[in-house]
């Protein structure tokens, strides 16, 4: 059985006249980088707030390490809300120490680790400044550090990359992966598909309050792939089409690429033997390479939301 750090079971939540979550279940394997995807207003943040016990669910349960979650369990979770919360008038360093000590760290340990983090993220000059003097991106970094400094086993980020320029988003991504390497399980919500593709190994897609797609990213992309292959070959597309018929079909237009080769996309139905197609291509078309084409998460997201997956 898979070792799940977090299980969400049949969670429903309604606000007056609006159903925010409708029977949502999902399992987060220990050690995963878990993406919570969905269009704006799908219910991602509500789900995260329920996991963090900020909002109470109308029905359903949340299990941490297989046991129903208790109020104290939340102290072992690092949570970075989408609307960042820092005391504006407080000095950056003191504030970070305050949050770290609330998480149970000693002052000395908190200071040591925080100085380390501040140096890593290029914030060390801002230690003695007030939060209101920081730019939005820097304040977000401070928030990030405050979330992770006590190295909890479960980290939840709500839209961690929003508001960052590409360079800093990348920096943050590397830090999140670093925390993952050191053993943390990560849950992040986002509507930025590219980041899911890059760092998530599992995901759930929430649309209109329901979980419409859940599983490992690899599997989802393979399933959604629709058995499309990209072929690079010497012959023209006409020859290729004749060669593979009736086992497979040529899809769309082929295009010529450098070195006198042609690139074509073909569809091989699931029950056909791919090796047979490869043999024919090899014999008749001067095959150079053949690859299964993975759809981008963006395609999957749009197709799933539109119900055409």
């Amino acid at each position: 059985m898979v070792d799940n750090i977090l299980q969400v079971e049949h969670i429903s939540k309604s606000y007056t006249g609006h159903r925010a979550l409708d029977d949502v279940s999902l399992s987060v394997p220990r050690g995963a980088v878990y993406g919570l995807l969905g269009p704006n207003g799908a219910g991602k943040t509500t789900l995260i707030r329920i996991i963090n016990r900020i909002t109470l669910a109308d029905s359903g349960s949340v299990l941490l390490d297989g046991k129903p979650m208790q109020a104290e369990d939340i102290f072992h979770i690092g949570y970075m809300p989408e609307e960042r919360g820092l005391y504006k008038k407080m000095r950056v360093g003191e504030q970070a120490i305050f949050f770290a000590r609330l998480k149970g760290m000693s002052r000395r340990e908190a200071e040591r680790r925080l100085h380390n983090w501040f140096l890593r993220l290029g914030l060390d000059e801002w230690w003695g400044r007030k939060v209101e003097d920081l730019s939005k991106g820097m304040a977000q970094k401070v928030q990030f550090i405050s979330t992770v400094v006590h190295e909890p086993k479960l980290l939840i980020f709500d839209e961690p990359f929003s508001g960052f320029d590409p360079i800093n988003a990348n920096l943050l991504k590397d830090e999140i992966l670093g925390l993952h390497d050191r053993g943390a399980t990560i849950i992040l919500s986002t509507h930025n598909m590219a980041s899911v593709e890059e760092i998530c190994d599992h995901m759930t897609l929430i649309n209109k309050s329901r979980n419409i797609l859940s599983g490992s990213v690899e599997e989802i992309r393979r399933t959604a792939g629709g058995n499309v292959f990209e072929v690079i070959h010497r012959s023209n597309s006409q020859t290729l089409a004749e060669a593979i018929t009736p086992i497979a079909q040529l899809l769309g237009q082929s295009e010529g690429i450098v070195g006198g080769y042609t690139r074509s996309k073909i569809h091989i139905p699931k029950d056909e033997d791919v090796r047979e197609v490869i043999a024919r291509l090899n014999d008749h078309c001067g095959l150079r390479s053949i690859n299964e084409v993975m759809p981008s998460m963006n395609d999957i997201f749009i197709r799933a939301v539109n119900g055409t997956l």
Partner: peptide
């Protein structure tokens, strides 16, 4: 309103 409270409640009651 600054949502500091959301962060605080992950540390204390």
């Amino acid at each position: 309103s600054s949502r500091v409270i959301d962060v605080l409640v992950t540390s204390c009651t």
